[in-house]
Design a protein around this nucleic acid. Structure first.
Lengths: 146, 146
DNA sequence: TCAATTAAATTACAGTTGTAAACGAAAAGG
DNA sequence: CCTTTTCGTTTACAACTGTAATTTAATTGA
């Protein structure tokens, strides 16, 4: 598998464009510019640039429809979000992850179904979970832990 | 409160340096260069640059000790991690957050205590949780939802 | 005291990102 | 047909990032 995960190459501003294309499922540039332009104070030209970069990066597909293009996502939204969250966790000290989860959870509104699913997964994990998770911030030999 | 959250200005490469300083609690540049240099294939000069930028950004404090500096973190690791994870979630569609959590959870090793705490928090949230969470990717008026 | 070492600060430099204007081709209106 | 509008492409440009060499100032060993 190529190590170059496309989701890691998409920038913050570009995610804003992806979000509307994901939600609309497909859209022409006029619609994207209109919708994104309402959320962010960006000029049409700016949004055009972002669309162009997303196409070049392989995040959006184009289909010619008359004189213009219809843009559609080439990556699944949920998958991209799953990866983004996992990548974020992977960058932090293993010891911090649990509490970061707790904190994030408290700040996030979740549906009952999602909450129940989380509880189920957690309960399944509990029996085989370690008593403690060690810090992984230092290389071998520098075991000052934290 | 100033809107400029320092944690948002710290780059990926800089986080790598912060992780070791957090774990060591305090360190001189030689130690940082040694430890970070073992994890990443960076030249000493590169790590010095990162340290300098972190000081300028207010993420590291310096204390003169003889001819050199001792560096200490000016921001708490757990707080920074909490914010990082929350920021990540805030950038994604509200509908995706629950499943992203589930996915991330499955990928992450957590201690029994953390798991139990998560279960407790989730169980507390359950009664007042909404049946569904709506997409928040479009501005008012474009209610195509998703 | 003078050279060699060290530590921090300054400078470098290409690639990415945010932000956008300008350009060129095609279409639509007259 | 010719002008105006539209849509995509090219070009622009400063700030930020990753990566690092060079310089300067102080320190230490000889």
């Amino acid at each position: 598998m190529p190590t170059t995960d496309i989701t890691e190459t998409i920038t913050n501003a570009e995610w804003c464009v992806m979000r509307v294309v994901w939600t609309l499922e497909k859209a022409d540039s006029h619609t994207i510019i209109d919708v994104v332009g309402q959320q962010h104070d960006w000029k049409a030209a700016t949004i055009k640039t972002l669309i162009g970069r997303l196409v070049k990066k392989g995040a959006l597909a184009t289909t010619k429809s008359g004189r213009q293009f219809i843009y559609t996502p080439l990556i699944a939204e949920q998958t991209a979000m799953d990866n983004a969250l996992t990548d974020q966790l992977d960058q932090m000290c293993a010891m911090c992850r649990g509490q970061a989860f707790v904190h994030a959870l408290d700040q996030t509104e979740l549906s009952q179904a999602d909450i129940q699913e989380l509880i189920d997964h957690l309960q399944a994990k509990l029996p085989t979970a370690p008593a403690t998770v060690a810090c992984d911030c230092l290389p071998e030999g520098y075991e000052g832990s934290c």
